[in-house]
């Protein structure tokens, strides 16, 4: 038993999850196809209608530039439901029972799962970036900033995947995770600046959206990619929107601090049925 055992065990589990992605490509196809569809829909169908309000005198191509980071954020957050559903399935099928009777590191199953979903998200981000470039999105702030933008998206999604890991362990079946994520995450990604500028939202919704970490991760990515001026075009942006990187990292840290221990404690009690 060495210091590296937890890491080695996590990699074994992560590898297993990635093999599944390879064998059931539908999973990845679905998670990348739907954002590609979103890009095309919003860029070419709604783009003209919404576009004008993004920047003064804006147009559809300015909107496409605005849109991409929002779709990135929505997609990586949604990707975290794979973690939850995957874990719920492992519990249901008794795989967790098998793991829990092995002398492996008890934190490796969740660590491996959340790790493999980061790799999923990397693949998804690459596919979407290419789509973005095709429809006219550009990185304008240099390579380093862009990398930071991608990293922030990945960190935030990683934090959310620990919430989903915990949910996956407490629900009775994987379907519940999918439904719950649709009911909670889907609206959260819309009450934000992902698809429309915040100026277009009515009072209370706008307040929620200004403090929604999905807004700030989007805002941060946009700024780091050089797609939009700081502050999101608001006259008096919230503190969160003025410091989107910091605010997003704070949220990520708090989520990780709460849900890593919570999920691990729940894992130690999880068994089929």
């Amino acid at each position: 038993m060495s210091l590296f055992t937890p890491l080695a065990d996590s990699l074994v589990v992560a590898r297993r999850n990635l093999i599944k992605v390879k064998r059931v490509p539908d999973l990845l196809v679905f998670t990348t196809l739907s954002p590609i569809m979103f890009v095309l829909l919003f860029a070419f169908v709604f783009g003209g209608a919404i576009g004008g309000s993004v920047t003064p005198g804006g147009n559809a191509s300015a909107y496409r530039e605005f849109l991409i980071a929002g779709i990135f954020a929505q997609t990586v957050v949604f990707g975290s439901t794979i973690t939850g559903a995957g874990i719920a399935e492992d519990v249901q099928k008794g795989i967790v029972d098998r793991f829990r009777t092995l002398p492996m590191s008890p934190s490796a199953v969740l660590a491996g799962r959340t790790l493999s979903d980061v790799m999923n998200n990397v693949i998804v981000l690459v596919v979407m970036s290419v789509t973005g470039l095709i429809v006219g999105w550009r990185i304008r702030e240099g390579f380093l900033h862009a990398v930071l933008g991608y990293l922030l998206l990945l960190v935030f999604a990683y934090a959310i995947s620990w919430i989903m890991a915990w949910i996956g362990l407490i629900v009775p079946s994987p379907e519940v995770v999918n439904n719950a994520s649709f009911v909670v995450i889907f609206p959260m990604t819309f009450i934000a600046n992902t698809f429309v500028p915040l100026t277009s939202l009515p009072g209370p919704l706008r307040f929620v959206a200004e403090w929604n970490p999905i807004s700030t991760v989007t805002q941060a990515a946009r700024e780091l990619f050089g797609n939009i001026p700081a502050g999101g075009g608001l006259q008096t942006p919230s503190w969160a929107l003025q410091n989107p990187e910091l605010y997003t990292l704070l949220w990520s840290a708090v989520i990780l601090a709460i849900f890593i221990p919570l999920a691990n404690a729940q894992y130690k009690r999880s068994t089929s049925r």
Partner: peptide, 30 residues
């Protein structure tokens, strides 16, 4: 570290091959 277990319902990973399943278990036994 001292036990081997086979539960009432087969707990095999459907998406891995038989070989990969056992190889994974072996690695997790270190």
């Amino acid at each position: 570290r001292t036990i081997g277990v086979s539960g009432q319902y087969a707990a095999v990973d459907e998406y891995l091959t038989g070989y990969e399943n056992l190889d994974m278990v072996g690695r997790l036994y270190h």
